[in-house]
Each structure stands twice: as C-alpha cells, then as structure tokens.
Design a protein around this nucleic acid. Structure first.
Length: 653
RNA sequence: GCCGCCGUAGCUCAGGGGUAGAGCACUCCAUUGGUAAUGGAGAGGCCGACAGUUCGAAUCUGUCCGGCGGCACCA
C-alpha cells in the first residue's frame, strides 16, 4: 500500500503500481476527463507516472494556466510527426516551448514554404484527431543512438550525447512516431486541441551557433481555446498596426534610405519629438548633478586599441583613413599607409580623456559626465530594424567617475532618477536584470568578483528585486539592465548601469586621494533611455502614434468651417503660438468632416474648430483625439487647458 | 553575416512573354458645407539594378542591391 496526499491535506491509500491516472479516476470521472497531467511534489509530470508513497499530487486540468506549456510542447511534437509523415526524409532536431507558442527546427534540403504550413496544419489536425497516447520509455544511450542512427537522425545523436550522465534518456512515443524528450506530456495528442496555428518559417542555426548548419524552423502558436487563439492573433494584428516604421511614414516623422542604410533622416515633425525628449533628459541630468560635455566623432584607432574596443569590436566599427583619396584612375585610391581613425562606437574612452585632463582630487568625485553622444556602429545588415536597431545612434550616455565606496550611493541615485524618468514617460513596469561576466572579457577574476559583488550589493541596498543573467555582462564589467513593459505587454531593454574597473586602468585614469596618493576611480557607464532613436520608436509603438501632448509634433490644428471665420481663427492661431504651442491652421475650402478626419488620422491630439458661431462669440469648439464629440469653450479657456497639458512632466507643479 | 519570402505610381496593392491598372494622396475646376472621406477633371511608373533566354522580357532564368520575418550579433 502507498499513501498519496492532496494539496488540501487529504490522503488516500492505493495499491503499489498505481499511476496518476488511476488516482484521478478513483476520485471522479468528470475530473479525470479534464485532467491532462499532474504536479507531483511540485513538479509537472505525466499522469501515467507511477505514484510513490508520500507523493503530494495536484491535478492539472486542460484549462489551467500550467497546461498551456504542455499544450504547446505537445503541439511541437505533433508538428514534428506531421512533417515527417509528409516528408519522411526530413530530420528532426529540437522543438521547445516559447512565449505564446512553440517552434520546431528541421533539417531538410528544400526549405518550407508558407503553403507547406497549411498542409502541415491539416496533417497536425488529423494526428490530433487520431489521439495516440503519449507513452514514455527509458532507453539506454547505445540503444537510442542505434535506432536514431538507423533512421538517419544525425542531429538527435548529438542531442543524445548531450543528455547528462545519470539522467534518464526518455523516449516519448505517440503512435508510431517517437522522439527523445525530457517531457512531460499530456495523455494523448487529442489533448492538444485545435486552437493552434503555424505562423512563420525561418532559418535558424543548429544549436544557435552561426558556424553550424542552418535549419528550417517552423513557428507556431497554441492555446487552450479557440477564443484565446483568436485573441492572440488579434494582439499580433494590433502590434502590426503600431509598427513605428509604418506610423513614422504615415505621420511624416522620419525616413530611411539605401544611401544611409541604418541611419535616420529625421523630418521636422519627428525631430520635434526627438528634441522634446532630449531637452527633457537634459533638464533631468542637470538637476541630478551631471555635467554635459561633447567629445569628438573621429578618434585615432590607437585609443580604441588601448581601451580594448579594437580587439573586441573592430568588426563593428567604421574606420576612416586620414588621407585624401587620389582622383587619378590609375593610382590607388588610398595608399594604405594612412593613419586610421574610427567613428566612435561609444563615448566612454573619450569621457576618460576629459577626466584625465588636469589632476583630479577625491573632492571632485563623484564626477558625472554626460553626453548626447552620436555613435556609429557597423551593425550587421540583417540586424537593422527601423529605429530600433540603427547604425548611427544618439545615447543619453553618461559616465560617473567615483570612489569604490560611492558605488552604492550612485547606484541608488541612478535607480531613483531612472524611476522618475520612466514614470514621466508612462512606463511603470520595470524589470531589472544583473548580467555577470561573459566568456570573453577584460580584467582578472578578482576584479570581476569584486565588481559583481559591489553591483549586486548596491542594487540590493535599493530594495529593488532583480534576476541574474549569467554571462551576459559587458566585456569590461557586470551590468544592470532595465527592461520596461509597454502598453501591449512587450518588454524593451532601455536603461543600463555598468560597473567598470577595467577601462580606468587601461586608459590610466586616476585621482589624488585623501592620503595624497594616486588612486584609480571606478567608472559607472549608464544610460536611461539608451538610444534616443530606439526609445522614440518604443514611444511611437507604446502610444500607437498618439503621443501625449508634450511630445506631439503638432499639438493643435485650428480648422475653420466657413471662410468668414478665417480672421477669428487666425487670431486663435497666433494666441496658441504665443502660449508656446505647436499649432497648424487649416483654412482650406473643404468640409469640416473632411478636415476632422484628416487631422484625426494624422493623430493630432486637439482640433479647434471655428465656424460662424464661434467667430462671433469668441469661442472654439474643441475636439480631442479619440473623443466622440466636442466641447465649446472660450478661446482663453481652451488655450489655457492645452498649454497646461503641454507642459513637460518634469516642469509641472 | 546566414536562411526564407518579397521588390509594379508618394502610399496600399491588382496584373502578367506582345511595352501598365485601381483606390487613397497630389494638381486644377465647381462647391462656404457644423465635427472621421463633396463632385468632376488632370497629371503621375526605365514594373529595384545588371546580365542571360527569346523575334520580343515588367513578366522566364541567374547575379547583385534593398525591404520584410527569423537566426547570429548587440560595447
């Protein structure tokens, strides 16, 4: 006899050899019907597992949140079976669950087409209908390798070799088809249900390494119900509507073109946003004790060699020979002997140069040097993406030179500043990651121990929670990453704080301490918005183009109904301008419906409509973006309301 | 950089071996209309670039360039 416990504390006795299935069936038929897996001593597990004495079990129903992962995992298996049924010469590799779905990587000569996806979906539907049971077997490594070798599954052999010693090698069968898998799975393929869809095909490297062969990856999404699937697909559509590249074109904010691949042409309206963001950050930094500087674009590569960037990031730097190219067609355009300069990919070495001028005292620390540094990075072609990934970017960058015992205080000050800034932009949900030493790095292990410890301690002292990301730090030091959630739940990494003991050493930065000896300062690299280009992209998507008043490129349009109102309207325009608002007028000979639609589509937050009536009584009819109707009020009242709304958040009372 | 898909008017897209179409936008004319599209006319394209096949290529093939979706990268 064995005893099984339930979460509510109840216990039941069963014969040895009892499985989860037997247990749930002994409780209630209807419960058994809905149960697809179990949580056994806290861990998700197959319902068919044998129970052991003292096990605490909790049943996982198909509608439970926890079942989603299983649905997606099983869907990945069904996908693989479907593909191998349709194209038996295809090799299978891995098929994990990801956010909102799953994928499976296949090795195949012919890549999959979008039409193939339809065919595969259909076959998946049939496999699910068949409802084969998932059954687990434990094989020896030799046996598994022999079987997969015979099937020509070379990638699986590598995976089998990667399973840790001492760990069971599980084979999950679903009918005739089987795969090496850690599990767990639901009862049968039928439990996957029909709320799934294959979404895209893409290339992906085997084991994520670009030296390895490229596999064909099929992405899919799967949900418990058709409603959830529909909701998810709707969400994707919403995200597409917010695409900043599309909105940027429609709203005439910026453009990109071949001749300056990856660099932004800001149009007047877009640059209004850029300047509003930059001025705001400048005020915040001024108030937080930073001093703004401006450093050169082109610096001799000798400096980059010294700093270590040359060695690590040479392939991402734009290098410029300091030489006039020859015009003679027969001569080489460049001699190859010129001194080499590089466009700065980041500001830190230049900031150290500023720090190094003159002699710094401990009394000068912490010294906070800020720069809206324009940096160039030769990003891979495939990486470029609208404003999100560009080759010329402007960072709200700053470097804090301080003593080691000031790190904690500076970290706290930084976190507070960051919170207030994100709050002002309307981002309240911030997730913090601490990234530790990467494989390729500068500095000794001792220095890294210290840096990681200091940064972790400092963050802990602020009382914020964070998660650790092993191996994701910068080459010169550990870093904090600040990820913020946007209006539709997507996460963006923006802020960063990096602790650096290495660069001050390499570039020989020092200050005179109280003991009148020379000391190395610690350097904190930090940014809050990251690249302004990217941050503006995020703002556009977060607001779906409907920028808050203080950031809206055009804050108000004054539109007339009849030309008799032009004179009064012109006065209102002048008054709005005098109040510091960005205003446009629309006195065209068009119907008011037409004008309202046009400016609404252009996402102008306020339209002041003036007809005969308003002109006579000195009022305006105010129509706000997104509102159904409009409000008539006095010109003064309307302007005051708009002006107060247009005050940047840091300047409000 | 790698894999796949795509490239026709400013934008969104249709078409397709015999030299090009729609809607919106644009220009002009009429309309002075009360809150998300007034009517009419006009103009606008080396069908991404180069090469090949062909009597003939925007259409088929190849190469390149660019865009998109992923992957890799992200100081």
């Amino acid at each position: 006899m064995i005893t099984v416990k339930f979460p509510d504390g109840a216990t039941r006795d069963y014969a040895v050899g009892t499985t989860g299935t037997t247990v749930v069936e002994s409780i209630s038929k209807s419960l058994a019907k809905k149960t697809v897996a179990m949580r056994r001593n806290g861990e998700l597990s197959d319902l068919s597992e044998l129970m052991e004495n003292g096990d605490v079990i909790e049943f996982v129903l198909r509608d439970d949140e926890a079942a989603l992962e299983l649905i997606r995992h099983d869907a990945a298996h069904v996908l693989a079976e479907a593909v191998q049924e349709l194209w038996p010469d295809t090799q299978v590799t891995i098929g994990p669950v990801i956010e909102n779905g799953f994928y499976y990587d296949f090795s195949r000569d012919e890549p999959f087409s979008m039409d193939d996806l339809k065919t595969i979906e259909k076959r998946m539907g049939q496999i699910i209908q068949r409802g084969a049971s998932f059954t687990k077997e434990v094989w020896s490594r030799e046996e598994a390798k022999r079987v997969f070798k015979a099937k020509g599954e070379d990638f699986k052999i590598e995976l089998i070799d990667a399973v840790k010693e001492g760990e069971d090698l599980n084979i999950y069968k679903q009918g005739q088809w089987f795969d090496v898998c850690r599990g767990p799975h639901m009862r049968t393929t039928r439990d996957v249900g029909q709320a799934f869809k294959l979404t895209k095909v893409a290339g992906a490297y085997w084991r994520g390494d670009s030296n390895n062969p490229v596999l064909s990856r099929i992405y899919g999404t799967a949900w418990a119900t058709k409603e959830q699937l529909a909701e998810h697909l709707h969400m994707i559509e919403e995200a597409e509507k917010r695409d900043h590249r599309k909105l940027g074109r429609e709203m005439d904010l910026f453009h990109l073109q071949e001749e300056a691949q990856g660099s932004v042409f800001w149009h007047p309206k877009g640059y209004v946003i850029f300047r509003a963001v930059e001025s705001y950050i400048r005020r915040k930094l001024d108030n937080a004790g930073y001093q703004e500087i401006k450093t050169p674009q082109l610096l001799d590569i000798k400096l980059w060699e010294k700093s270590g960037h040359w060695e690590k990031f040479r392939d991402g730097m734009f290098v410029v020979p300091d030489e006039v190219p020859a015009e003679d067609d027969n001569a080489p355009v460049l001699s190859g002997n010129a001194k080499l300069m590089a466009l700065k990919p980041m500001n830190c070495p230049a900031h150290v140069q500023v720090f190094n001028q003159g002699i710094k005292s401990y009394r000068d620390l912490p010294l906070r040097l800020a720069e809206f540094g324009c940096c160039h990075r030769n990003e891979a072609h495939g990486a470029l993406h609208g404003l999100m990934r560009v080759r010329q970017l402007t960072m709200d960058d700053a470097h804090i030179f301080c003593r080691e015992d000031q790190v904690q205080d500076e970290t706290k000050k930084f976190c507070d500043l960051l919170d207030s800034i994100y709050h002002d932009f309307g981002f309240e949900d911030v997730n913090i990651l601490l990234s530790t030493r990467p494989e390729v790095r500068a500095g000794t292990d001792e220095i890294w121990d210290k840096a990681e410890g200091d940064l972790g301690d400092a963050l802990e002292a602020t009382g914020r929670s964070f998660t650790i990301e092993e191996g994701e730090g910068a080459f010169y030091g550990p870093k904090l990453e600040f990820h913020l959630k946007d209006a539709i739940g997507r996460s963006w990494q923006c802020g960063t704080l990096q602790l650096d003991f290495v660069l001050p050493e390499r570039l020989d930065a020092s200050y005179i301490g109280e003991d009148s000896a020379r000391h190395r300062p610690v350097m904190l690299h930090r940014a809050i918005l990251g690249s302004l280009e990217r941050f503006i992209g995020i703002l556009i998507e977060n607001h779906a183009g409907r920028m808050p008043m203080w950031l809206a490129p055009v804050q108000c349009v004054v539109a007339t109904i009849v030309s008799d109102a032009d004179e009064a309207a012109l006065k209102v325009v002048e008054q709005l301008k005098a109040a510091g608002l960005r205003v446009e007028s629309d006195f065209r000979n068009e119907k008011i419906n037409y004008k309202v639609r046009e400016h609404s589509v252009a996402k102008v937050p306020a339209i002041f409509v003036i007809g005969k009536r308003e002109a006579e009584e000195g009022s305006v009819s105010v129509r706000r973006l997104g509102a159904q109707g409009q409000t008539v009020m006095s010109v003064e009242e309307a302007i005051a309301a708009l002006a107060s709304e247009a005050v940047p958040p840091d300047l409000r009372d």
